[in-house]
């Protein structure tokens, strides 16, 4: 059973108030006010002058369990919200692998097209690859995190602002820590035109809460559990109100959804779950043997709703 052998994250120290981003993103003062009052967004993390390699390196630096196990890494996966995360020909993931002393023959690839739910897809894919041919003790290094280096990568119109940061985890095909009990995905190709069509965007907004709640429910049922037993939900940090809506649909207490970083960090692409994992541990929301959920919605070319149940 896929498990997370170790989890880490990195947040740079820089913070920018969303009002300071309004000009470059063409937002009106009213739109910014709505983001602050209604969506609960306030500041976003930024690593001014830093590179994607800096962010990923910071996350991996927290993976103490990797040291001495570099030779066991069979795959490296970078989960991406956006297909292009650096200008050609930069390749920060391969640079990082070289720095870490990983075997030069280790397959390195990106996982995407589930937008901000790609982190969960990467964990699932890593576990399945290792189960197929990993060998004893084999590990996969899953990375997440991007630079808000274009207007498109700085904000989700009407929903969120992206924050810079990164997450990393070591996945194994079996193990006792943070075992993946189930993974459910609802791919909605009909929302391929959300960015271009007001009607499609309105429909996406209408079904968002219900669809995300439904996939959480599906994952919990697939794990043979009831939602009452779930000690915490680790969300994507899109905004506060979207998750409050999901809580209303599910009848799940919003104080157990780790939304702590929404106002001060923003939506850290696919790395939110790793960041929120640390926060949930610190808040005592993850208890040994108890299940928790990681869930996300991704909107890009098509929409993805995904949820994973893990046992801490």
């Amino acid at each position: 059973m896929t498990s997370l052998f170790a989890v880490s994250d990195h947040l740079p120290s820089g913070r920018v108030p969303i009002e300071a981003l309004a000009g470059e993103l063409g937002l009106t003062p009213m739109q910014v006010r709505i983001f602050r009052r209604y969506h609960g967004l306030g500041e976003v993390s930024r690593d001014e002058g830093g590179s994607l390699l800096d962010l990923l390196r910071g996350a991996v630096a927290g993976l103490a369990a990797l040291r001495g196990r570099e030779h066991l890494v069979r795959y490296v996966l970078h989960a991406r919200s956006f297909p292009t995360v650096v200008p050609y020909p930069h390749d920060p993931v391969r640079e990082l692998c070289a720095e870490l002393g990983l075997d030069a023959g280790v397959p390195v690839f990106s996982v995407g097209h589930h937008a901000c739910a790609s982190g969960l897809l990467a964990i699932d894919a890593a576990g399945r690859l290792l189960a197929a041919d990993g060998g004893p003790g084999a590990l996969a290094l899953v990375l997440a995190g991007e630079k808000a280096f274009t207007p498109e990568a700085a904000a989700v119109p009407g929903s969120s602002f992206f924050g810079e940061g990164a997450g990393a985890c070591l996945v194994s095909a079996s193990g006792g820590r943070d075992r993946v009990l189930s993974y459910a995905v609802d791919l909605r190709g009909e929302f391929d035109t959300v960015a271009d069509c007001a009607e499609s965007e309105s429909e996406f907004q209408r079904i968002y809460g219900e669809a995300l709640a439904a996939v959480v429910r599906a994952a919990v049922e697939r794990a043979g559990l009831s939602l009452e037993r779930v000690t915490a939900v680790l969300p994507h940090n899109v905004n506060r109100v979207a998750w409050h809506q999901v809580c209303r649909v599910l009848g799940y207490p919003r104080e157990r959804v780790v939304l702590d970083h929404v106002p001060t960090v923003g939506h850290v692409f696919c790395a939110d779950h790793f960041l929120n994992h640390r926060t949930a541990r610190q808040r005592g929301l993850l208890r040994p043997g108890e299940p928790y959920v990681m869930a996300a919605a991704g909107a890009g070319r098509g929409a993805t709703f995904a949820a994973m149940v893990l046992q801490h």
Partner: peptide
């Protein structure tokens, strides 16, 4: 839509001089 709906609520706050809980 969701944006103009929220604008309406915030305009209403200004008109009433009262704060509305949007939670």
């Amino acid at each position: 839509n969701s944006t103009t709906g929220l604008e309406l609520v915030l305009e209403l706050e200004e008109r009433l001089g009262l704060e509305i809980s949007v939670e």
